[in-house]
């Protein structure tokens, strides 16, 4: 099973606040996933390209043509805090 410290590190990167009670089950679930990957690793995969995508489609690109933007009021409507010009957030420097 993975270490408690590793769970905490991943939780911090993901901005997840885990309670004491959640830590142990989370470590167990994450370990199950990692164990599964360890099982796959036992296969001999020399010469097999990594499967980044499961669909066998490539090259769907979008022509560089403008499409309508959202009206400003609509874009800002769902924000928890706004100023006259935009989305208001706590200063990341603070």
């Amino acid at each position: 099973m993975i270490e408690r410290s590793e769970v905490l590190a991943v939780a911090r990167l993901a901005r997840l606040e885990l309670s004491e009670e959640e830590l142990e089950p989370m470590a167990r679930e994450l370990s199950t996933v990692l164990d599964h990957i360890a099982t796959i690793r036992q296969l001999d995969l020399t010469g097999v390209a990594p499967t980044s995508h499961v669909v066998d489609v490539t090259g769907a690109l979008r022509p560089d043509e403008p499409r309508p933007c959202l009206p400003r009021e609509v874009a800002l409507a769902q924000a928890p805090a706004v100023s006259a010009d935009g989305f208001l957030v706590p200063s990341p420097q603070a």
């Binding site: 010009d85 989305f87 208001l88 957030v89 200063s91």
Partner: peptide
């Protein structure tokens, strides 16, 4: 009471 920033997307 805290510093704030505005995001322009």
């Amino acid at each position: 009471g805290s510093d704030a920033s505005v995001v322009d997307f």
